[in-house]
Design a protein around this nucleic acid. Sequence first.
RNA 1: GGGAGUUUAGCUCAGCUGGUUCAGAGCAUCUGCCUUACAAGCAGAGGGUCGAUGGUUCGAAUCCGUCAACUCCCA
Length: 883
Amino acid sequence: MELSKNYTPAAAEGKWYQHWMDKGYFRSKPDNRPPFTVVIPPPNVTGVLHMGHTLNETVQDILVRRARMSGYNACWVPGSDHASIATEAKVVNMLKTEKGIEKSQLTREEFLKHAFEWKEKYGGIIYSQIKKLGCSCDWDRVTFTMDDHYYEAVIKVFVDLYNKGKIYRGARMINWDPKAKTALSDEEVLYKDLQGKLYHVQYALEDGDGNLTGESITIATQRPETIMGDTAICVNPDDERYKHLIGHFAIVPLVNRRVPIIFDTYVDKEFGTGALKVTPAHDINDYNLGLKHNLEVVDTLNDDGTLSAAAGVFVGEDRFKARKLVVAALAEQGLLVKEQEYTTRLGYSERNPDTVVEPRISTQWFVKMAELAKPALDAVVNGDVKIHPGDRFLATYKYWMENVKDWCISRQLWWGQRIPSYYAPDGTFEVATSLDKAVAQFKARGVDLKAEDLRQDDDCLDTWFSSWLWPMEVFNGVSNPGNEEINYYYPTNVLVTGQDIIFFWVARMIMAGMEYKNEKPFGDVYFTGMVRDKLGRKMSKQLGNSPDLLELIDRFGADAVRFGIMIASPAGNDLLFDDSSCEQGRNFNNKIWNALKLVKMWEGRVAEGASSSEEAHFAVNWFENRLNEVKAQVIDLFKDFKLSEALNLICNHLIWNDFCSWYLEWVKPGFEQPIDAAIYKKTVYFFEELMHLAHPFLPFVTEEIYQLLATREAGDDLVIKQYAAPSAVDANILAQGELAKEVITSIRDARAKNQIKPKDPIALHIDTAQQKAFKQIEDMLIKQVNAKAINYVNAPVSGCIALVIQKDKFYLETENELDPAAQKEALLKDLAYNQGFLASVDKKLSNEKFVQNAKPEAVELERKKKADAEAKIAAITESLKSL
RNA sequence: GGGAGUUUAGCUCAGCUGGUUCAGAGCAUCUGCCUUACAAGCAGAGGGUCGAUGGUUCGAAUCCGUCAACUCCCA
């Protein structure tokens, strides 16, 4: 069979993925093997795969594939979440632009029908991308957070937590997204530093009897448009400037409301003017002050961020326009004392990043977090759940858990699980898994109502309130507790995700797991870093610096993309991704493809006993040991999740350097010469082993090469081939291999430095005490340094290039004109280095404290170093004599 | 303001619980090669006062103190 010049990924990738799927290799059913379970962090159903996902899915696939090849029953559950805010926004937008329909024209049912159509149309895109990447998910298990069983589970959990008193309904200050017109949780607000303005505004004062005193008080505010909601002015009780105002009132400009002057140490005397306007409806701190001082709450904003009727002025204007109008009106009335530049922080909606979140008092549903947090904190603190890398996130996790606030879970949206709370006309309600049950519950407390009298809550639940059940409910563990699958697969083994959702998701999953299974949802959490561009910037749509995954795969192949993103990805650190790192992957694939071509060329020239020369045996023996050494190292690297190091070790060092650059050259027969059958067989075996090791990282090219290396029986597929434990390693043989490499490299270097052309042969004289070691690699040496002959000597050979490698002396005889001065200089440099080394060792050994205090091994090592250095110095000195 | 992390070659990073003149890898750079698997390649080479400064120690990139710069999280 003719193999193409270069590896062509496109054909191989489609073919093998289909083959693996046809064979059902990614499917998992409970059996006697230990499970290795991974649940995908569900991407948004409407999304496409970006580089962050790519890194994430690649890491998971590497872990899952390696587990599958290590005796585990590997199960990787794919799926997506419904992303209520983002998806609802997209659907609303689509309806408006494509069909000219406003959401308000539709009933809930009609809207949901459109939303599900949308999901059917676009929800599969992300799955096809995950497949393109080569991910070995069990596609029979695809789960969506709005699936029927999942919906049921979410409602069940809501009702259960409500009945346990862990969910409550109440009016609280929440974060309001005026664009999506919904409440948000604290975690869905992102803060940004901004340059703002501080407006100093004058309020007239009145005494206790209702008479204007002619005095005024000046407050500083960033949000003049909220002054219509002011219900007090607050000053510090220790502030001498304002002490006389006890019992006085201030008149709020524009609306002329009479509000009390209150005193509270909360106010910072130094900030602004030391007087604070209090707007309980629109600021969390003011809200708390309001509760404490029993202040009136005047909500001056509508749900879309425009001023409400309660504002009295500029009703219907957007809050930012209203700010300008209020400032102008105040200025006109001479109440604006000054404007001052001021740096502040504003909260933005995570899903609508351009929208400033409005603190707002609103009746919402909340989860009481304190009790849930306790076991979830313990699980991490006592090491039951291990976070990688290291303990870096332990402190943050602990802090959040210990200071956790109640979780606002209601959203004013339709796309999501509808809150199962049923209201009677009088406003009382029952929480139940169904309308019938709600009716029964009303009846049970003596309220006789018909189903049609009840109205279900219009709101739906936060998406994270469904995602936090993910590791359980993908196995129906909540809707159908104790089933065979949840018992087998739970807890899952490892969760791979970005550190940015530690609170959104990771912490809450642990809470849910502890609450409903009384067991952690996963044993390890592996946090990947953030993918940034070459310049260290976050990848974002605005910057346009996020490469298109499919386009990358087209250009380089999926394996190369996986290689590119993994090689640049140290555990847990951010990684700077650049297309060119995929080139490295492509080049590697090409390299092993060419190695395959070489081996296939030999296939036709195999001969029994053709060249059972010593050096070939040496090369085989050496590589076998080297392979086992790396196998053992890889096991350790995987234990520590050091995947990029493992990739580098396997591909760059073991395969490219040791196998291709050294081993293959060492066993390569002469031009058109036959190759010994035993060596050929071993070579194919090594190649298979290498593909086996690299397979989790580069699934396609390794399977392709594995299949081409030899004729395979049906079912002999690399993807499921099991790893054997590495054999013990002979350190002596490894050291001999290193010596051989060092000798070859040094001689080549000497040749290059002396301008000996690659084609010009040399004669090599070796002065060594271990002639036997060199005898067995003689032919190999001759080939690799282009020597015409090797002979052994016991004394310096003059007129040669002299080299000392470890304890052995080498003399390179050449026709070229040599420069004895340069030679001498090189040797003297080497000598000086070794003398310096010897001096430092001697210094240590003559230090009594060292000899007394250091570990005996350390002292012994120094003695050995001393002996080695002395031998080397002797060798160099002798070589110098030849010049 | 509170907390965490980072600082090692031009770039991205390894260097665990101190011990080879220990300073390492990949990329980039330079030199020589179209050697019949591979120029997307082969063979070589150069390059760093381990952020700064004190300390502990026989011995510090590694442990401790202080400082500086950058990053992230929380308020």
